[in-house]
Amino acid sequence: MILFFKSASRSRTISVEDNPLDQRESKNNTADETCTSLTVWRKSLIFSCEGFAVFGSDGSLVYRVDNYTGRGRRPGQVILMDGSGKPILTISRRKKLGLVDSWLVYEGEVDEYCSNKKSVIEPIFCVRKSLNVLQPNFNVLAYVYRGGGMSDKRHSYVVEGSYAHRSCKVLDGSRRVVAEIKRKEAMVGGVSFGLEVFLLIVQPGFDSGFAMALVLLLDQIFS
Rank of each mutant, 00 (worst) to 15 (best):
R64D: 00
K96S: 14
M81S: 07
H155V: 01
H165T: 13
S162E: 10
L134G: 03
S162A: 04
R128T: 13
M150V: 12
N139C: 07
R74L: 03
S130K: 12
G85D: 04
P136L: 13
N132I: 11
M150H: 09
L80D: 02
S151T: 13
Y68P: 00
V110F: 09
S130W: 07
G83F: 10
V133R: 14
K95S: 13
Y143G: 01
C114P: 00
K96E: 13
I79V: 15
N116I: 13
G148M: 10
N139Y: 07
Y106C: 10
L89N: 08
G149L: 12
F125R: 06
A164K: 13
G161I: 11
G148W: 05
W103Q: 02
V133Q: 09
V100N: 07
P136A: 13
V127Y: 00
L89W: 06
L97Y: 09
C126A: 14
L134W: 10
Y143T: 03
N139S: 14
K117G: 06
V65G: 00
N67R: 05
S162K: 05
I91G: 00
R154S: 15
Y113M: 13
G98L: 12
K118G: 04
M81C: 14
E107I: 07
G147Y: 09
V127Q: 04
M81L: 02
P136Y: 11
R71Q: 03
N116R: 15
R154M: 12
L97S: 12
V159K: 00
E109S: 12
V100P: 00
R73G: 04
R93T: 09
S130R: 10
S115L: 06
N137Y: 14
A142S: 11
L89P: 00
I124V: 12
L131M: 13
E112I: 11
G70T: 01
N132S: 14
P75F: 07
G108H: 01
